[in-house]
Design a protein around this nucleic acid. Structure first.
Length: 866
RNA sequence: GGGCACUUAGCUCAGCGGUAGAGCACUGCUUUCACACGGCAGGGGUCACAGGUUCAAAUCCUGUAGUGCCCACCA
């Protein structure tokens, strides 16, 4: 064995471990092993859009703990890593860093800038993940914007298009007027703000008026109907009549619909194309005309065909004046202007403040508009039942996270829009024909020409003049939703680069991810697997919670409670930080608590020192340990306390294994820690010291102790190693015999239950010994003397009720020497009753005499039974 | 408005039908002999509240309140 260093040199050791893991290819998937042992992880490719977050540390470490366990347990783990580097977040980052605006540049130039900026940020993530000791296979690193990823993503497009699951449709879409792109339902956030509910008077055809309430008066021009509930007092009077919109004088039908709440506002609401999602539904249900007055930048149009046949006005001239007054104004300003105009004419009849929750774009924060543009949609609404069924086939960890998925699917209102009017993404692989006779025909790229950029390439058999080029790109989720397929490089039986590998690896074993992207990443990945192969993408999904600041609040820049993960690692060391993540189970949010970090620090130090003690005894010993089970059976480990310790260890191994198999790594950690501190360090090491180190002990007892020490220490190191990879790797190496410098994290290196001694071996004896040790410690503590203070006489008696059933000394005979040593007792004897006048505990002059009464019932029973 | 989770010692959490647990913090003691980044002992909780089931409830059921999240509505 190597010499044991005085102190644990953390930064150097961490580096050395990483070097060795890389040199040994320790974390590579081995294709030559039988497929049944495969354990494939669908690692989240982090969005490379800026700052590292402690949340990354938290969730990626949890996944790694699981990965390390499964690898050690013998699975052939494939743990890939990639970077999601395209899409809106990256564009915004590049715009910030380079101080440019993507929309003012041509695509090629902007993409060049993106590719220039990305590597710096990827390097930061690579550095963090590597320091975290993620046991990923770095040789499989990929980018979602690489040629290969673009090919796979476009293959996914081809397959869905061919199956009719992906369509180009001209229809209302959620629109971000700041980023000027269509977005998906999943990218919608909400903000709360103060708004005003305005009561506005509409005229009635043939005289009279009707009052409506609206928070968006600037959309009066887009009004295509008024909606009223059947139970509204004026329902019978109004339904079927036509109203005249103020300022535009457009004739709009008054329509009955039960979604109009008679209690809200005036009970009569205008339907505009489009103010919100309900408008879209009304527009569809009642086949209302489309009246668009807002453009893609969120401003009011100048060109509004009022007066045309499907946009009739009773006073076209004043309508045009209104259009003229509002043209080019952004919605907020148009709203103010409109209210001004209404109030000048006495048409604004009331105003009351109201708390509004309005939908905004997640990325830009801009209030959304709903705009009619041609976009590409993946069909989801027609497949809710199938998607839900697939969700039920997957094991959600924790199980309740499935509910979030299900309520999201049940609440879907839009198909999945994947086209984005942006630059840096995977291009939609299509053109539109301009050939005579097939104008507008969609020309899809062929599989063999991928990856394709329609703005640069052409469809086979067409000239540049014959096509209109699709300039949109896919949303980043359209690509990251095939993250498993990016790894297998194959979509399904028909499309791909490596079908045999895909057949072997897909569906995968496990997806780790955070809960806030269940509605996006988890959902989209499930949809893609369903559409491509009618299957689930993975058998398990592990949902991690959030990391909160130490005050329990969400970390955010504005609160100034953000912690830099690199600093956290510098200050504490990776193992300590990983310990903290390991104490929190899947799905639970956690606070970054100094207490827990401190606990981890203590553990690492204690582990180091306990190993050092064992090492001191073992380094010059000539022993050849086999397994705990064999050494007990083979008569090498003969001492009852050694057997007891190994029995406890077996129990710990069994429980930890069981917990890990259920993905309850936090339970496993707790059990391992419990054994390590309470049984192993606090008691066993104290008990065994004399037998290993003092002269004059029987050789058999010493050999027994040394073997036990070796087994217990090396097993504990392996048990802790998924959590504390660096210190465990280092310690494991120090105990390695010459020429066997295998990593502790190697496949199959998890302690096997079959190799352990019998669980619970000599349990009663061990517990009785602990009771005696505890009793002596308590006496010494209460008397305020050192634990090392010698005891002149230690007398042990049984509980009064047991006193007739025999001498406890006979039962404890084999461990008397150990008890004497650990208690520092010069004399140890058993008595039927406590000696007269001792009264349990006492001191006399310099002498410490201790009398303990213990319950030996269990011990006797065990003796009798065994 | 619907759903989910949580509410246990000052703090962070475990326990989930059978005498209240851990770590940190607190108090006292303890330092040649692995570790003072240690050890030992101790104080501290009517397990959110109210009902119910049970021989027995922190644990199961019902309801209430608070916290967080998800979803929906938002004229």
């Amino acid at each position: 064995m190597k010499a044991f260093p005085e102190k644990y040199q953390r930064p150097e050791t961490e580096k050395e471990c990483r070097r060795r893991w890389a040199a040994d290819d320790a974390f590579k998937w081995d294709p030559s092993l039988p497929p049944a042992s495969d354990y494939v992880i669908d690692t989240p490719p982090p969005t490379v859009s800026g700052t590292l977050h402690v949340g990354h540390v938290y969730s990626y470490t949890q996944a790694d703990i699981i990965a390390r366990y499964f690898r050690m347990s013998g699975r052939n783990v494939l743990y890939p890593i990639g970077w999601d580097d395209n899409g809106l977040p990256t564009e915004r980052l590049v715009e910030k860093v380079k101080k440019v605006r993507g929309r003012d540049m041509n695509r090629a130039e902007f993409v060049r800038l993106c590719r220039e900026v990305i590597p710096t940020y990827e390097a930061q993530f690579r550095d963090l993940f590597s320091r975290l000791a993620l046991s990923v296979d770095w040789s499989r690193e990929y980018q979602t914007i690489s040629d290969e990823s673009r090919t796979v993503s476009q293959l996914s497009f081809l397959d869905l298009y061919r199956k009719g699951l992906l369509e180009r449709r001209l229809e209302p879409t959620l629109w971000d007027p700041v980023d000027r792109t269509s977005i998906a339902q999943a990218e919608v956030d909400e903000i709360e703000r103060q708004g005003k509910l305005n009561t506005v008077a509409f005229g009635l055809e043939g005289g009279g008026e009707v009052l409506i309430a609206t928070t968006r008066p600037e959309l009066i021009g887009a009004c295509s109907a008024l909606m009223i509930h059947r139970d509204h007092p004026r329902a019978s009077e109004l339904i079927g009549k036509r109203a005249i919109s103020p300022l535009y004088n457009v004739l709009v039908p008054i329509v009955a619909d039960d979604k109009a709440d008679p209690e809200k506002g005036t009970g009569i609401v205008m339907c505009c194309t489009f103010g919100d999602v309900t408008d879209v539904q009304w527009w569809r249900d009642h086949k209302l005309p489309l009246r668009i007055i807002i453009d893609k930048t969120g401003r009011l149009n100048a060109d509004i065909p009022i007066g045309s046949t499907d946009w009739p006005s009773t006073d076209v001239a004043s309508a045009k004046a209104t259009v003229e007054a509002l043209k080019g104004l952004p919605v907020e300003k148009a709203r103010a202007a409109m209210l001004q105009l209404l109030s000048e004419r006495g048409l604004l009849r009331g105003q009351q403040p109201t708390n509004q929750v309005i939908p905004v774009a997640e990325r830009s924060g801009a209030p959304l508009e709903i705009i009619v543009t041609p976009q590409w949609f993946i069909r989801t609404l027609d497949f809710k039942a199938e998607i839900l069924a697939k969700g039920k086939e997957i094991v959600w960890r924790p199980d309740y996270m499935r509910q979030r998925f299900e309520s999201w699917v049940e609440g879907l209102k839009w198909d999945w829009s994947i086209s984005r009017q942006r630059h840096f993404g995977v291009p939609l692989p299509v053109w539109y024909s301009k050939r005579r006779g097939e104008e507008g025909k969609i020309l899809v790229a062929s599989a063999d020409q991928l990856p394709v950029d329609p703005t640069a390439d052409l469809p086979q058999g067409y000239s540049a003049e014959e096509v209109e080029r699709e300039a949109d790109v896919m949303d980043t989720w359209a690509t990251s939703s095939v993250s498993p397929q990016l790894v297998t490089r194959t979509i399904n039986e028909d499309y791909g680069l490596d079908l045999p590998v895909h057949r072997r690896l897909f569906p995968m074993a496990m997806r780790p991810q955070a809960h806030e992207i269940i509605r996006t990443w988890a959902f989209y990945t499930i949809v893609k697997a369903l559409h491509h192969q009618a299957t689930i993408p993975w058998r398990n999904i592990c949902i991690s919670g959030w990391c909160l600041a130490s005050d329990g609040a969400k970390m955010s820049k504005s609160k100034g409670n953000v912690i830099d993960p690199i600093k956290l690692l510098d200050e504490n060391g990776t193992d300590v930080v990983r310990y903290w993540t390991g104490t929190s189970r899947l799905g639970n949010d956690t606070v970054l608590s100094p207490n827990t970090l401190n606990q981890g620090k203590r553990l690492v130090t204690k582990l180091w020192n306990a190993a050092r003690l064992a090492h001191l005894s073992l380094q010059n010993a000539e022993i050849s340990p086999t397994t705990p089970a064999q050494d007990v059976r083979g008569g090498v480990i003969v001492h009852p306390l050694d057997q007891w310790l190994l029995g406890c260890l077996a129990d710990t191994v069994g429980k930890a294994t069981e917990s890990f198999e259920a993905y309850e790594y936090a339970d496993a950690l707790r059990g391992i820690e419990d054994f390590f501190w309470r049984i192993y360090c606090d008691n066993y090491l104290e008990l065994v010291k004399s037998r290993t180190r003092f002269e004059g002990k029987p050789a058999a007892a010493q050999l027994s102790a040394l073997h036990t020490l070796y087994h217990a220490t090396t097993t504990v190191i392996r048990l802790f190693s998924p959590f504390l990879p660096y210190v465990c790797e280092t310690l494991n190496d120090l105990f390695a015999r010459e020429g066997s410098a295998k990593t502790v994290h190697g496949r199959g290196n998890w302690p096997k239950l079959a190799d352990q001694a019998d669980a619970g071996l000599n349990r009663e004896l061990g517990e009785t010994v602990l009771e005696i040790i505890g009793g002596v410690r308590k006496v010494k503590s209460e008397l305020g003397v050192s634990l090392r203070a010698p005891v002149s006489s230690l007398v042990i008696t049984s509980e009064p009720s047991r006193q007739n059933s025999g001498e406890p000394g006979a039962l404890l005979a084999p461990v008397l020497g150990d008890l004497k040593d650990v208690a520092m007792a010069q004399e140890l004897r058993f008595a039927a009753a406590a000696p007269e006048g001792w009264a349990g505990t006492l001191t006399a002059n310099q002498e410490l005499r201790v009398s303990l009464t213990i319950d030996t019932a269990a011990l006797e029973k065990a003796k009798a039974g065994g």
